[in-house]
């Protein structure tokens, strides 16, 4: 019980505090590759604080959806944090950690975000919602196959149990094939190149940005923070599955501290690699996306069949 509370507080604080950092880190990496100086490493924190201090503007057309969507998003994201252990695994997890529940809690957040996109009656918002829902529909089979593979290999549908197994070194060689689909899922869910371009405000390319175009002030800050949280969680899943060094040390102050440092190093490397991947790939056309997803689907299905048959 106590260890769960400790876990909850530590996990939530670590993710919330780290979330903005990776946003500016990836921007910095991309800027360096483009020969620019780029923003400060802590720029995302300043941005969030600035937005929190600004007033929110609602459209005359908008309804309660616009007003509750940011809160639902941030609450869903925080609850989702409790599903993915970052540093250590508590003794008891009270029904948290179910993979499918995790996915669907994030889907609930996305559902409201998409509705909020339609709420203001702007063409941009509608376009963003439409594209976001289409993309998230066709990525779903891949996500499920990936998690089904994990469920078969570790005989569990719970992140706590799966990470418990990986942390003692139970990583199958064939699972490495899952890394590519997982990274494609990460890029998709965090709205990055080649699926989406987080930086432009050009209607040809934008998906996620278009959807939250009508959000402002505090609400925009909440939306940005929750997509940052989602990014950290997906990164944590990849890290704890494939590079579990330093994860889940014996429960003590030093143990948690060491795990935190290990996680920071691993996640910074991963974030930098995401920045590098983004710098080297061009944004794909919207209707070319199914090809990328088909590759990811095939790879994950092959892994799954390998795990099931061999």
């Amino acid at each position: 019980m106590i260890s769960f509370f400790l876990f909850a507080i530590v996990n939530i604080l670590v993710v919330l505090i780290l979330a903005p950092f990776y946003i500016s880190l990836i921007k910095k990496v991309k800027a360096l590759f483009q020969g620019r100086k780029g923003p400060k490493l802590f720029q995302a924190y300043y941005n969030l604080l600035k937005l929190f201090k600004k007033e929110s503007i609602y459209s005359t057309n908008s309804s309660f959806i616009m007003r509750v969507a940011p809160y639902i998003n941030i609450i869903c994201s925080i609850v989702a944090i409790l599903f993915v252990p970052l540093l250590f695994i508590p003794d008891n997890y009270f029904g948290f950690g179910n993979i499918i529940l995790f996915l669907y809690i994030l889907a609930l957040a996305k559902f409201f975000m998409a509705l909020a996109g339609l709420d203001a009656g702007s063409t941009f918002g509608g376009m963003g919602s439409s594209r976001e829902m289409s993309i998230s529909s066709i990525i779903e089979p891949i996500v499920i196959i990936i998690f089904a593979t994990l469920a078969f290999v570790y005989n569990s549908v719970n992140f706590f149990e799966i990470f418990g197994a990986t942390s003692v070194g139970l990583v199958h060689a064939s699972l490495w094939l899952l890394l590519i689909p997982l990274i494609i899922v990460l890029l998709t869910e965090t709205a990055r190149i080649p699926i989406d371009n987080p930086e432009t405000h050009l209607e040809l390319t934008m998906v996620h940005e278009a959807m939250i175009l009508e959000q402002s002030g505090k609400n925009l800050a909440l939306m940005e923070l929750s997509s940052g949280v989602k990014q950290v969680l997906l990164m944590a899943i990849i890290i704890n599955l494939f590079f579990p060094i330093g994860f889940n040390l014996p429960l003590s102050l030093i143990g948690i501290g060491t795990s935190l440092i290990a996680f920071l190093i691993k996640s910074i490397i991963l974030a930098i690699s995401i920045g590098i991947i983004e710098s080297f790939i061009a944004k794909s056309r919207l209707f070319r996306l199914p090809i990328i997803f088909a590759i990811a689907f095939l790879l994950s299905l092959i892994t799954l069949m390998m795990e099931m048959l061999l």
Binding site: K110, A120, G121, M133, I138, I145, A148, L301
Partner: peptide
């Protein structure tokens, strides 16, 4: 497994469908 992935696709498309239904009927 193929049936499962199509089932996953179905449930995701259902969410898209009802975002459309609610959004177009009630919002804006």
């Amino acid at each position: 497994m193929i049936s499962m992935s199509l089932f996953a696709l179905t449930s995701a498309l259902a969410a898209a469908c009802f975002v459309k239904a609610f959004g177009i009927v009630f919002l804006a």
